[in-house]
Design a binder for these strands. Structure first.
Lengths: 157, 157
DNA sequence: GTCTAAACTTAGCCAAGGCTTACTTTGTGT
DNA sequence: ACACAAAGTAAGCCTTGGCTAAGTTTAGAC
C-alpha cells in the first residue's frame, strides 16, 4: 500500500506539509468571513465620497441584492461598530468604519491599477480586483505597488 | 439635497454604473459558491496524484476541518457527480471531477508561478494563490502566463 | 395637509459549511 | 480470531447571507 513516499510526478510542486497546507486553507476561510463586511463598508465609504450619502437602496442596487439583505447587513455592521445608522435614515461610518473603508479602498485601488498595468481590460480588471482584493497579502500588495511604479512611470487618470 | 451629480473627488475612479457594479459583485458571489467545491476536488486530485489515494482523514487534515465536515462535503461532491465514493472506502474522481481538478490545478499553478515571478516569498505565494485562484479571469490568467514567460526565460523549481 | 410611492424594516424561510457527540466499520497487531 | 484504534458516517446544532412577503415610515406631489 503506497503511503508515505514524497512522490513527485507532475509538472511541479509536491504537496506542502500538512500543517502548512491547513494554514493556507484557514487563511482563505478567514478572509471569506471578513470579505463581505469589508465590501459593504468600502461601498458605503465610496457612496459617501462620491454621492454625498449612502442609502440602503443604493447599496442594494449596487450590490445586486435585495433591500432586505442590505437592511440585515446594516444591523450587523452596526453591532460591529462600523456604521452609525438611525432607522430610515442615511448611513454614516464610525471611525473604525472609516478606517476599514480607507484600508479596503487603498488595497482595491492598488490591485486594480496593478491589473491594468499588467495589461488587463477595464472590465476584467474591475471584476478581478473585486474578487482578489481580499486575498492579497501585504507582501504581494507591496510587489504590486512596485510593479505599477516601474511599469507606468506616469499616468493614472 | 445633493443627489445625482457624478462628483469625482478622490484619488481616482468614480463609481461604475450601477448595473456594472452589481455584475461585479455577482461574479464574486458566484465564484464563492464554486470555490470550496473546486478546492476539494483539486485537493483530491492532488492526493491521488501524489499519494496514490485520497482518504477523508487526509483531506480533513489538509483542509484543517473536522472529518464530519469532509464526510458531508463528499456526499455533496457525489451528488454533483464529481467523485465516486463507496462508504468507508477511498475516493476517486469521476471524469467530470478529473476535468475540474485538472482545470483548477492549472489555474492554481499559473497564479502560483506568477506570484513567484513577481517576487513573492514561497509562503506568501502559496497562501495568496490559494485565495486568488478563483477570482482570476481567463484574460488575466493569460497575462500572468505571458508575464511568467517573459520574466523567467528558464527556471521553475 | 394629505395621500401615495418609494424607502426601509421585520419575520420567517432556505442552503451552505462549519462544529460536536455518538455510532459503525475496517483492518491490524498479537 | 479478536479486540481495539483509527477511519468514516449520521444526527443535530449554529451562523451567514441570500430570498419573499408583509408591514411601517418618510417625504414629495398636489
Amino acid at each position: 500500500m503506497p503511503h508515505k513516499a514524497p512522490i513527485r510526478s507532475k509538472s511541479g510542486d509536491a504537496l506542502p506539509p500538512v500543517e502548512q497546507h491547513a494554514r493556507q486553507y484557514a487563511t482563505v476561510r478567514q478572509a471569506h468571513e471578513t470579505e463581505l463586511i469589508e465590501d459593504y463598508v468600502e461601498l458605503i465609504g465610496d457612496l459617501l465620497t462620491h454621492r454625498g450619502e449612502a442609502r440602503a437602496a443604493d447599496i442594494a442596487a449596487r450590490m445586486g441584492v435585495s433591500q432586505a439583505t442590505v437592511s440585515k447587513m446594516i444591523r450587523r455592521l452596526n453591532e460591529l461598530g462600523l456604521v452609525n445608522s438611525r432607522p430610515y435614515r442615511s448611513l454614516f461610518l464610525t471611525e473604525a468604519g472609516e478606517a476599514m473603508a480607507a484600508h479596503s479602498r487603498e488595497r482595491h485601488d492598488i490591485v486594480l491599477h496593478f491589473l491594468r498595468a499588467l495589461g488587463a481590460s477595464d472590465n476584467a480588471a474591475r471584476i478581478d480586483a473585486e474578487g482578489m482584493e481580499h486575498h492579497v497579502s501585504d507582501e504581494t500588495l507591496d510587489l504590486m505597488q512596485r510593479f505599477i511604479a516601474t511599469s507606468a512611470p506616469t499616468d493614472k487618470r
